[in-house]
Nucleic acid binder design. Structure first.
Length: 423
RNA sequence: GGAGAAAUGGCAGAGUGGUCGAAUGCGGCAGUCUUGAAAACUGUUGAGGGUCACACCUCCGGGGGUUCGAAUCCCUCUUUCUCCGCCA
């Protein structure tokens, strides 16, 4: 959520920045500012009315104490109007505030200056590329065929138990998955991230805190009986650890990592690009989350990018990094780098990590603040990234590491797997 | 799931209708003392709205009510604890 004060002072800058998202925000911004004016005016009226009422109450109390019951009762009558007025003003204030809040929820974050205009993912900028794309033998297969051939992932069985998009991992497939989780967690904790295990279901307030609500509820599984949402990413529970928190400046940087399954409804997805592991309703991911001082957040973002690079180098997977254009940038993000692994057998790039700085956007919703050197509360910056998402990394490994004798295991994973080939 | 008790500032813990945004202790911060630190002493220390700054307003788990006036009384929800039941 954007900060009203900032909007008020830099209206034009906000409108211009939002153009990168192909959003014409003039009217929305104008409306928000107007609502805020109304809110303030109503608040002032209400405050004055309450001040009058408080004064009268005090007088009445004093009169009763000094035995002047008659004067007191006379005054009581005067409070009746004040009560009515304040009731009305309170109602007005509530409805204006709600309207303002809802309007603010609908404005996405301001893109960072380095973000380019663009309509869709086609216009994302490739900023880095590394690794060798392997030349595969004749008859190399996409991962869903490999999964069947070596009996390591059973998609049909998942359909029987739950539905499409809920695969069953078997044998060495399951073990490789577990190896990846442990490897990622180890890499992250070695880099200083503290491992946490968090709930996989969250309440509504948490959904609002990180920005999944109100506009993306269709993407989350919801349990009406208990009013809980299955997490679409560990970002939600982990970042919400810091909802309503005021940090001491000395506590920066805060760095957490968490492994969780992720649940996504993926309503509207279809076609060849969602085959196999490419798009699932349930998948595993290891996430890194940081809470940073505003002056340090971009440095931290770079650090996260370097960290993910390091992991992909160790896995020896060919990858590239994209800086998302305005049209593809997530609602709450100011700057996002996507990592994509090249899948040779599918001849396409697969997104396996997304690293973002949200600046104060989430912090404002979360009320995540810190005390600056003057003792004033300031909003912190939040960041997160996948390190890494499992299924497509798995797909990349299966496809790029296949040989005619089987699928070899990346060297760094062998100690975690306990085997070096799937055949 | 059933019965009972409770929810107050960073923490502990007073406060049962007006003088309470809230005693006291701990913690935090600043200072005195000290070569430095500790101890001791002194001061200071919740959040939000509003204002140029004051004033002023709101917040004692959430919501609603009674009253001129609510941390304090009533209703309701949530959470926590104890006991019972069930259970990985």
């Amino acid at each position: 959520m954007l900060q009203l004060n900032a909007i008020r002072e830099n209206k034009e800058a906000f409108i211009n920045a939002l153009k990168k998202r192909n959003l014409r925000a003039d009217a929305i911004i104008e409306n928000v500012l107007q609502l805020d004016e109304n809110r303030k005016a109503t608040q002032t009226q209400l405050d004055n009315t309450l001040a009058d009422a408080n004064k009268l109450s005090k007088e009445i109390g004093d009169l009763f104490k000094s035995g002047k019951a008659k004067e007191a009762n006379d005054l009581k009558e005067k409070t009746a109007t004040l009560k009515e007025v304040s009731k009305q003003l309170t109602d007005d204030l509530n409805s204006i505030s709600t309207e303002l809040q809802n309007a603010l929820y609908l404005i996405p974050n301001i893109p960072h200056e380095s973000v380019v205009v663009g309509k869709s993912e086609e216009e994302n900028e490739e900023v880095f590329k590394e690794g060798t794309i392997p030349t595969l033998f004749e008859g190399a297969l996409p991962h869903w065929e490999l999964a069947k051939k070596y009996d390591i992932i059973d998609f049909e069985l998942g359909v029987k138990i739950a539905g499409a998009g809920f695969p069953v991992y078997k044998g060495k497939g399951a073990k490789l998955q577990r190896a990846l989780i442990n490897y990622f967690l180890d890499k992250n904790t070695e880099a200083g991230y503290t491992e946490v295990q968090v709930p996989h279901l969250v309440n509504e307030a948490s959904g609002y805190g990180t920005g999944q609500l109100p506009d993306k509820e269709g993407q989350m599984y919801y349990m009406p009986e208990d009013d809980l949402y299955l997490i679409p990413t560990a970002e939600v529970p982990v970042t919400n650890i810091f909802r309503d928190v005021i940090l001491n400046e000395k506590e920066f940087p805060i760095t957490y990592t968490a492994y969780t399954p992720c649940f996504r409804r993926e309503a509207g997805s279809y076609g060849a690009h969602v085959r196999g592991l490419n798009r699932l309703h349930q998948f595993d991911k290891v996430e890194i989350v940081r809470v940073e001082h505003p002056d340090k957040s971009y440095q931290a973002l770079n650090g996260m990018v370097e960290h993910v690079k390091d992991i992909l180098r160790e896995l020896k997977l060919p990858y590239r990094i994209l800086r998302l254009c305005g049209g593809d940038l997530g609602f709450t993000s100011a700057l996002t780098f996507d990592f994509e692994v090249f899948s040779t057998a599918q001849d396409r790039w697969l997104e396996i990590s997304s690293v973002s700085n949200f600046e104060t956007y989430q912090a404002n919703r979360l009320k995540l603040r810190y005390k600056d050197e003057n003792g004033k509360s300031q909003l912190a910056h939040t960041l997160n990234g996948s390190a890494l998402a499992l299924p497509r990394v798995l797909a990349g490994i299966l496809e790029n590491y296949q040989t005619e004798d089987g699928i070899t295991i990346p060297e760094v994973l062998v100690p975690y797997c306990g085997f070096d080939i799937i055949n």
